[in-house]
Nucleic acid binder design. Structure first.
Length: 152
DNA sequence: GCCAACGTTGGC
DNA sequence: GCCAACGTTGGC
């Protein structure tokens, strides 16, 4: 089972928003980056666990855990003209963008901040901490996953 | 295929 | 709001 980290701006969609969804489950829509798309479409499997990361906010960091409950299917927002993620080049017969469904597992008692993650030498190879990294979905090594959980 | 211009991400 | 570090687009 592979582990992941996914970023979201809490102003747009926070871990509390996910928790408030019906069945505490929602589709992770709006991914418009090919590297992230490929991971969603090809690699992310049902049962995988995902760190929920809040970006672009006052307290940046990992805030909890979710679980993949449905594997890739076409992102419907790409076909909706009024949606901000509308992409006229995504053909319903040959979809360009995909989503997975994620279910809330739990929220940490505190945010494990980006600042804090940077202080741990054991985490220095984390994709998240590499300079210039902008991927909104990335794999997490098992050792990194366990280490982060140990900080909680 | 090159690369300049433009758009986006995301920490600060 | 700034801006570095990307990614994408499109003319050539």
């Amino acid at each position: 089972m592979q582990k992941w980290l996914m970023k979201s701006e809490p102003n747009e969609f926070s871990i509390d928003d996910l928790k408030a969804c019906p069945k505490q489950t929602d589709m992770w829509d709006g991914i418009r980056n090919y590297q992230a798309r490929n991971m969603i479409r090809d690699t992310i499997k049902k049962g995988d666990l995902v760190f929920f990361y809040h970006s672009n906010c006052a307290l940046i960091g990992i805030v909890g855990i979710m679980e993949v409950v449905k594997e890739a299917y076409p992102d419907p927002t790409a076909f909706e003209q009024n949606d901000k993620h509308f992409d006229p080049k995504s053909d319903p017969d040959n979809p360009r963008w995909f989503v997975v469904d994620l279910k809330f597992k739990r929220k940490f008692d505190r945010t494990i901040s980006l600042h804090e993650l940077k202080e741990h030498k054991q985490l220095e190879d984390m994709r998240l901490l590499q300079k210039g990294n902008r991927l909104s979905i990335m794999p997490i090594e098992d050792l990194e996953w366990d280490y982060v959980l140990g900080l909680e």
